[in-house]
């Protein structure tokens, strides 16, 4: 393998590893911006993964599979939304419940799909452009979902910063009582944010089972939903930084693969610990300055909203 091949393969690995995190982290970012803390990202991802995979294998239609992944993520997200927004349950506990439920449900549905493979999601091919050495494949030869993730990162940044709806969403997340007093529908805004977050987590899961592996393995998200949650904190609730953070984490997987490729005698388990350890270190570094974190976090995050009148 010569130099350019290594660069291309490294870049491709980073992109594939980062894309599911981009989806999940961006979705959760919007949810948290609306003031809701959904710890069930892992559960929504894994449900999205199996539903997309099952659809893909059954219908052999990649687009339908992606769509079903997003919808099923939104559906279980809606379950969470109903509990915390309508029945006013504790957000931390309900998020945990969503993860436990999602892992169980996906294992049940996925029972018949173990050992099956999926053909994959078609990649973009533009004559000439895709054929450019190195950057051709990296920029113009990715699958549809990678471009979607980039579009979402830009779109969400624009939505939150420059649209009226984004402003309302942020207002609800900063001070739900004030937002309610002005007449904004707090619950409805939050419910839509939660559904969107669920759909995004579902897309992240769909990417894992349709592109990354492409297989169904029980519990295959392996903590990525939780890493996405950490990424939101790392990103200080800014979409651009969340995107960057996801690619940083994608980069860690490169180290993992290359050390194994070079043939160093480091047990694979120790290398597999890297993403989790890095998440912890990142959290520590970010959280050390508690005052700063309080400034960037949405002020109503995790608080229960009950309209007395």
């Amino acid at each position: 393998m010569d130099g350019t091949d290594i660069v291309v393969s490294a870049a491709l690995t980073i992109i594939t590893a980062a894309t599911p995190l981009v989806f999940a982290a961006l979705g959760e970012l919007v949810v948290e911006k609306s003031g809701v803390l959904n710890l069930g990202v892992e559960g929504m991802m894994v449900v999205g993964a199996i539903m997309a995979f099952a659809t893909g294998v059954t219908t052999e239609n990649a687009f339908l599979a992606i769509l079903v992944g997003a919808l099923s993520g939104a559906l279980v997200g809606g379950l969470f939304g109903f509990l915390v927004l309508v029945l006013l349950s504790n957000q931390v506990a309900t998020g945990l419940a969503l993860t436990i439920f999602g892992i169980g449900l996906s294992a049940l549905v996925g029972h018949g799909f173990v050992g099956v493979t999926f053909a994959g999601v078609p990649s973009l091919y533009i004559p000439l452009l895709t054929d450019i050495p190195i950057i051709g494949t990296i920029l113009f030869g990715q699958d549809l979902m990678v471009y979607m993730s980039v579009a979402f990162a830009i779109g969400i940044g624009w939505f939150l910063k420059s649209t009226r709806a984004g402003l309302i969403l942020r207002a609800v997340g900063e001070n739900h009582d004030a937002a309610h007093a002005i007449g904004y529908p707090v619950i409805r805004v939050r419910f839509m944010a939660v559904l969107f977050g669920g759909a995004m987590a579902g897309l992240g899961g769909a990417y894992l089972s349709l592109v990354y592996t492409p297989l169904w393995v029980e519990n295959m998200t392996a903590g990525r939903g939780w890493i996405a949650l950490a990424l939101v904190v790392f990103a200080a609730w800014r979409p651009g930084r969340a995107f960057f953070g996801a690619y940083l984490f994608g980069g860690i997987t490169i180290i993992q693969l290359h050390v194994q490729g070079v043939g160093w005698a480091i047990p694979s388990q120790l290398l597999s610990m890297l993403p989790y350890l890095v998440t912890i270190i990142v959290l520590v570094v970010i959280s050390r300055d508690s005052g700063k974190q309080r400034l960037s976090a949405p002020a109503s995050l995790g608080k229960i909203f009950y309209a007395a009148s």
């Binding site: 419940a97 969503l98 436990i100 439920f101 892992i103 169980g104 049940l108």
Partner: peptide, 13 residues
Amino acid sequence: NAVTGVFQGMLLF
């Protein structure tokens, strides 16, 4: 066996 996990998740919900 995954039915167990679904039951447990539903119960908590």
